[in-house]
Amino acid sequence: MDEGAGPPVPYMARTRAYYRALGYDNDYAWALHDDVPFARPGKPLSAMTIGLVVTTGPGDGSHRDAQGRRRVWSGLVDSPPASFDTDLAWDRESTHTEDRESFLPLDALKRLVAEGVIGALAPRFHLVPTEYSQPKTTGRDAPEILKRLWEDEVDAAILTAL
């Protein structure tokens, strides 16, 4: 249990201060949605097929285009990459990303399937690139992820943000 509870880290304030310290004058504008969509599942959890969406791609860089930009990419649950591209903003001073399961929980989800908590895990997991451009996420990447989740016939999705 949590013995070190405290107020959550103010990441937005810290990020603003960091970019100011880098010499930028304009603060980053995070996505903001007044209306948040909400869908209820049509079946019990124990009968659902779950899809997994993550922000990390394969270590071999096959999720990057010729210019090195990250693109939507899909991997197989039963043969995930041996290493991962974790070149994202995470806390390198306090932790590490050497355990894949701490951000890509394939074994944990398989365990829940074996216990009958969830019905099945989709055969693929999907990378959604983290973008500064919100139109790229909402207009390009999110529809592609949704299309792939439908192809996988999932009933619901779990998203993990590194």
């Binding site: 974790t86 932790t95 701490s102 929980p105 074994d107």
Partner: peptide
Amino acid sequence: DFPLGNPCGHPWDHAMQ
């Protein structure tokens, strides 16, 4: 409520994950 990088549980703690 962890440092950024391990949203699904402490590294190597498969029970927590």
